[in-house]
Design a protein around this nucleic acid. Sequence first.
DNA 1: CAGTGGTCTAGACCACCAA
DNA 2: TGGTGGTCTAGACCACTGC
Lengths: 252, 252
Amino acid sequence: MAGETGAQRPKYQRIADDLKAAIERGEYGPGDRLPGESALAVQYEVAPLTARQALKILRIEGLVETKRGAGARVITFRPLRRHGIQRIAREQWGAGKSIWSADDDRPTAIETSVDTAPVPAHIAGMLGLEEGELVCTRSRRFVLREEQRPVQLSTSYLPYELVAGSAIMRVDTGEGGMYARLAELGHTPVRAKEEARSRLPTAEEAEGLAMPLERPVIKLCRTVFDADGRAVEVNEMTLDSAAYILDYTFDL
Amino acid sequence: MAGETGAQRPKYQRIADDLKAAIERGEYGPGDRLPGESALAVQYEVAPLTARQALKILRIEGLVETKRGAGARVITFRPLRRHGIQRIAREQWGAGKSIWSADDDRPTAIETSVDTAPVPAHIAGMLGLEEGELVCTRSRRFVLREEQRPVQLSTSYLPYELVAGSAIMRVDTGEGGMYARLAELGHTPVRAKEEARSRLPTAEEAEGLAMPLERPVIKLCRTVFDADGRAVEVNEMTLDSAAYILDYTFDL
DNA sequence: CAGTGGTCTAGACCACCAA
DNA sequence: TGGTGGTCTAGACCACTGC
């Protein structure tokens, strides 16, 4: 049977392929329990560890969720679509809307904390600050409203000197959000830069996103500039890589 | 053990953390060989499999490259920065430049193959074609010139009816590339949409990119539209997730 | 050739969940 | 409380690399 492309595909890959295909066919629906690793071991005549490696693949891809006493259950897999450009377009916050309303799946909010602290070393350069200068930090955790599932961690850094005393330092930034307030302060955001890369999560990130350690996160870093070219905000985001599609639409 | 700091952090995670820190400190430079798994097993007093799990983490993050008879060697890790927007700006191809010249790391070359085939099902909708209609496919493989390292697979789909007989169906599309030719055909690209998501590679993708099966790829799908809003090209790209930073800079 | 990593087996203990 | 997955051990064989 084997012998086509790369000689023999490992057993755990074949088992994973089978399970994926079964999920694809609808044989296991969202919430259904997959066969346990011991059952798979018997069925495929492999050692339990080999069966587990197969399940691990599905977990990395976000197809199943495994819990210790429970089994492996199929996830309702509908990735969020994040519109990187339209969502922070001026029409959004200019009209008093939250930037989230530009997304297909708006269901998100939660757990905002505002603080003042010395600028972290890796942020200082991006904001044009010296070591030791103060920034306002706004940390948020976004959770899907219905499923209770956390999908994003976010921390914004703004120069303290710029936003001190403004509504940006309050948990509720008011109509139009942070960008509308920045505009009122004379620093209208006119340009943004987003950098996306992928890496494995830290223990804290994995816990905060309720995701396995072996699944990568997308680190998204947005820098926003005013008309003078000054960086007024750096937003570091952490996304579950299996939960998101990033979307950028632009004119040439 | 001595310190109870880790509490419940798995041993293989601790070992991986140690190795990452050592690489960070420069203790192991690019090309250096890390201790083998048996050496690690002795050093940390764990089973060989546990040591291997640690090395697997470094391999997923792209810090080391493992080969069967050789050991684990530290990678020269300089992620490529891909400018999603500027690189296909009209000034680029309009001036006769290759779109790659917009990137910091232009060192990329090819293996182009052009073909004509029925449109794949998942592409048909994006191009507004019916099942069975023909498309021109341009498949390429991009390799870092110096290191010989493959970093991207790419397949473009264009409606056959649109490009039949043009230079787009030749391997060398001429000055300014495909987009300049599309403009000459009366379908000047004016708008683009890029979708990025992450998943584990297929066996073919992993082989084509010379990367491990357990490290995710970034699937990047670009659709390009002309002034009439017609989709004239769909480009499906596969990127090594450890090798790329995606960069989108835009006005609000 | 000796040594390496990749896969696999056959056990074990533990933390945790569900019935 | 019984069964689950998460971690770990102690072996094994094979494919491959470098000498």
